[in-house]
Write a protein that binds this DNA or RNA. Structure first.
Length: 887
DNA sequence: AATTTCACG
DNA sequence: ACGTACGTGAAATTC
């Protein structure tokens, strides 16, 4: 017989946690009848985790019976002044109980008693008859019940994050045993339950006193021996309160419950009622789980996708014309599709699905034709990945014109998952599993041996692409994002695929030479630093470095991190004058960074073709920018001379060719001038002034540009940047090393001189509050649920984001349009020049010698005419025989 | 896996 | 009185 395991759940407390875990989704979790369901849903999720982890034979969910209990009779103020439970949660409570009954789980409440007392009573019963008991609650009071047989799991901030209180853990946290915890509370009282203990005694003092005296009773027996002190006076004065608090804090372990432990044995699930319940609540995920398990359906089969397995013989029968609806999915295992192993593919043509592990079948003439014919439109998930993967098989795809991944990213990018299954689940389709479920992760990642398992997965993917297309297109239309999808993101994906596949040539020899030079410099610095420190240590360890600087050398501590001393640049910069070791550490850090991240890092990712093939992540950022990985080509050093040397290794394909670079001048400020309509700023850009000098003149009230000193310009520049980020006096003062007051003056002057910028910022925040999102010039959205947050810091962050996102995001829209137009131009003119890198406001080209003159002319033209704003767009060019010289 | 630091726009 | 600039990726150490 199985072990006797008892699970006791504090129903009110867990429901409360569940409600707030999905509080943000409160309005999206509604049953067709208009009932809120977020707490019911989250409760079930938490319960599933518990049932799986604990695997109990007996379960009881205890609820509070009402406001009046023996404790309120003892002390009228008990739990007084508590914010009342939100109506949206209260209405869900009966349904949680209903669901538990359907699941075969007993619930119980008892007049005049709290859930705590029911749990305490059952835990005591369980111990008597040899149960191992787990208690789950959000209330630390229950930790007094912990014993060697009983563990109390307290929910933490996360959804299913639990902290297990055993007597040992209790000792670590509070310094006392579970039963002494009651005495501790007697002294300190409980603010949330609204009863006092002894004035001036908090958790620390209470714990120390109880550790010394063992109990409240013993403490008062020996109170006369205590030295005269304020604390002693208070202990004596509040003695009654302490004893009352002890009574209130003590859980009744012998409450008059009318059921016994045998009555809480788990019963079979009533599948029929449960199914009806899920339908009533519109819980599609749980319904899908019921269906998948086949449980409770009289002989019904698990839902299975019909597919045909392709092989050398039947592959030739596959046909499609432009009238057909076609979905295509090419599976590769691993994120880096330039190198990943192929797993198989699936192809859906109208209602018929074909699958195979053999990706070479795609090269058969008829299949290849389907994938290459522009007129036959294909729906895919992750266009860029599909295009690159197919290209590795010699297939030049055309007509991939719907991408489920890109569509879902545009519709809502709060969830940045790239998993087809996960995204399908977001839109209520649970017919497809996640890759994690099918392939696993880390060490256990593998392709299923079972054909049916793999093919079902691949088939369900093309199915989901097809079935969710309508939903996603409708949402794009609702959001006025059709053009953003069709004319920006889809074409951008194709352009990026070509840039990635082409790659950029990186000279190993140049990097090796740098590696040797840096190694010598690092060794010298290391020796000097160890000499001055008087010992060897790991310079790369902030912990060890902190020990040397702040303990051994006794330098002043400027800033702390959550684990120790901060040793970041801003700290070390301030310590430079105190000890010569500090500048050497800064030098070491700077070179070590370049050596490890750029020299070594880049050498590791140069492919056999002598090139690096980055991946641009198109569905990741919150603002619509791209990001670049493996390697990241968007953060190649430019600010220090040592760092810049790295750029010498980036060279054109042909030895006498050029690297051509063209970047937008002040694109974000121009966007700001445009969207805000600020006349003064627009005028500055139209006249062609240096914007930072112009700002300096404005905020320092100067008559002519000649009066602007370099320092004034530097300050003005920082203010301009600050504005784009949603400025604060604190942030600006920190950036410029000036007083907060002075920073505030700059800001006030700025808004006086550019009044419509101020209006824009207010409008941006107000609009985000009204609509729940911020939007770019091309209708790209960023949802900002935190704009209504209660916490100042969280809300203020959302407000700055509301200001910044339309600016950063519109700039991202603009360069994407420029890239599309640029690629089109290169194709039209049949140029050999390749666009190779994008760095947010900059495009880099690999140019054959004889095309340089053409490129010099067309690139800035195309970039400057990407969109028409109320101010001109300006792009500046540079070129040379490597990236370093292309400035 | 989390933390710290630092490279870029 | 609070605690803050916006957006990223990678390496190294530590837990």
């Amino acid at each position: 017989m199985a072990d006797k395991k008892l699970l006791l759940i504090d129903g009110n407390s867990v429901a409360f946690r569940a409600f707030y875990a999905l509080y943000r989704q409160l309005e999206s979790f509604k049953s067709p009848d208009g009932l809120h369901t977020n707490a019911i849903y989250a409760f079930k999720n938490m319960l599933d985790v518990l049932l799986k982890d604990v695997d109990p034979t007996h379960v009881l969910v205890a609820f509070d019976a009402g406001k009046v209990t023996f404790r309120t009779k003892m002390y009228g103020e008990y739990k007084g002044g508590r914010a009342k439970t939100p109506e949206e949660l209260l209405e869900q409570m009966p349904y949680i109980q209903e669901m538990l009954h359907d699941l075969g789980i007993k619930t119980y409440e008892l007049k005049n008693y709290e859930a705590d007392d029911i749990i305490g009573t059952f835990a005591a019963k369980g111990e008597k008859v040899g149960f191992t008991t787990t208690i789950v609650t959000g209330d630390r009071d229950l930790t007094q019940l912990a014993s060697d047989k009983t563990t109390v799991e307290v929910t933490k901030s996360g959804v299913s994050q639990l902290e297990a209180y055993t007597p040992e853990h209790m000792k670590e946290v509070n310094g006392v045993t579970p039963s002494e915890f009651i005495d501790m509370k007697a002294l300190m009282g409980d603010n949330s339950d609204n009863y006092p203990g002894v004035e001036g005694i908090g958790p620390k003092t209470a714990s120390n006193l109880i550790q010394e005296y063992g109990s409240v009773e013993n403490l008062y027996d020996h109170i006369d021996e205590m030295k005269k002190s304020k604390r002693k006076e208070r202990l004596i004065r509040d003695k009654d309160k302490a004893f009352l608090a002890k009574k209130l804090a003590t859980i009744d372990r012998d409450s008059p419950v009318t059921i016994d432990i045998d009555d809480v044995k788990r019963e079979p699930v009533d599948y029929e009622k449960l199914r009806q319940f899920y339908e009533k609540m519109n819980f599609r995920k749980f319904l899908a789980e019921l269906n998948a398990s086949g449980a409770g359906q009289d002989g019904a089969e698990v839902e299975k996708v019909e597919y045909t397995v392709l092989n050398d013989d039947n592959v030739k029968d596959v046909k499609a014309t432009e009238k057909d609806t076609v979905e295509f999915y090419l599976e590769m295992l691993g994120a880096n599709y330039h190198l990943a192993d192929f797993v198989g593919f699936s192809l859906k043509i109208n209602d018929k699905i074909y699958v195979s592990r053999d990706v070479d079948l795609l090269e058969e003439d008829n299949i290849k034709h389907i994938l290459e014919d522009e007129k036959i439109k294909k729906n895919v998930f992750d266009l860029k990945r599909s295009m690159v993967g197919a290209h590795r098989l010699g297939i030049h795809t055309h007509g991939l014109d719907y991408d489920m991944l890109l569509a879902s990213y545009l519709v809502n990018n709060e969830n940045n998952s790239n998993d087809l299954g996960e995204i399908a689940h977001l839109y209520g389709d649970y017919s497809v599993k996640t890759d994690l479920e099918v392939y696993g992760k880390g060490k256990s990642e593998h392709i299923p041996d079972d054909d049916d398992e793999l093919f079902n997965h691949l088939a369900s993917k093309v199915n989901a692409i097809e079935s969710l297309k309508k939903t996603l297109l409708e949402k794009l239309k609702d959001h006025e994002q059709d053009a953003l999808f069709d004319t920006i993101e889809i074409p951008t994906a194709r352009v990026l695929a070509r840039m990635e596949m082409n790659g950029m040539k990186v000279e190993t020899s140049t990097l090796i030479q740098l590696q040797n030079e840096f190694a010598v410099k690092l060794k010298k610095l290391e020796d000097k630093i160890y000499g001055q420190a008087g010992e060897k240590f790991n310079l790369n360890s902030p912990k060890q470095l902190g020990h040397i600087l702040f303990e051994k050398l006794g330098l002043p501590v400027i800033k702390k991190t959550k684990t120790g001393y901060s040793t970041s640049v801003e700290v070390l910069d301030q310590l430079k004058t105190q000890s010569p070791i500090v500048s050497k550490i800064l030098d070491y850090r700077q070179i070590a960074k370049i050596q490890s991240t750029y020299v070594k890092g880049l050498l590791d990712v140069i492919q056999p073709d002598g090139r690096v093939h980055t991946r641009y992540l198109q569905t990741l950022t919150a603002t619509g920018r791209l990001s670049s990985v493996d390697p990241n080509l968007q953060n190649i050093p430019t600010r220090t001379e040592e760092g810049k040397q790295i750029r010498k290794a980036f060279v054109p394909s042909e030895p006498d060719g050029y690297i051509f670079s063209c970047d937008y001048s002040q694109v974000e400020l121009r966007v700001l001038a445009h969207v805000s309509g600020d006349q003064n700023m627009q005028e500055a850009f139209k006249t062609g002034y240096d914007i930072h000098s112009h700002t300096a003149m404005k905020i320092f009230h100067l008559e002519s540009p000649d009066e602007v000193t370099p320092l004034m310009r530097r300050h003005a520049k920082a203010v301009n940047f600050g504005i784009v980020y949603g400025i604060s006096d604190y942030g600006l003062s920190k950036n410029l090393g000036i007083s907060r007051k002075r920073a505030q003056e700059f800001i006030d002057n700025y808004f006086e001189q550019y009044p419509q910028i101020k209006d824009y910022m207010n409008k941006a925040v107000q609009e985000a509050r009204d609509k729940g999102y911020a939007e770019t010039i091309m209708h790209r959205r960023r949802y900002l649920p935190d704009i209504h947050a209660k916490k100042y810091t969280v809300r203020a962050f959302a407000e700055r984001t509301a200001i910044n996102s339309p600016i950063q995001g519109s700039a991202a829209d603009i360069i994407k349009i420029a890239m599309i137009n640029m690629q089109k131009k290169l194709d039209e003119l049949h140029l050999k020049t390749k666009m190779v890198i994008q760095v947010h406001d900059e495009l880099i080209f690999d140019v054959p010698k004889d095309e340089l003159e053409t490129i010099k002319k067309i690139v800035p033209e195309v970039m400057q005419s990407a969109v028409k704003l109320d101010v001109p767009l300006i792009a500046d060019s540079g070129w040379g025989h490597n990236w370093y010289d292309a400035k």
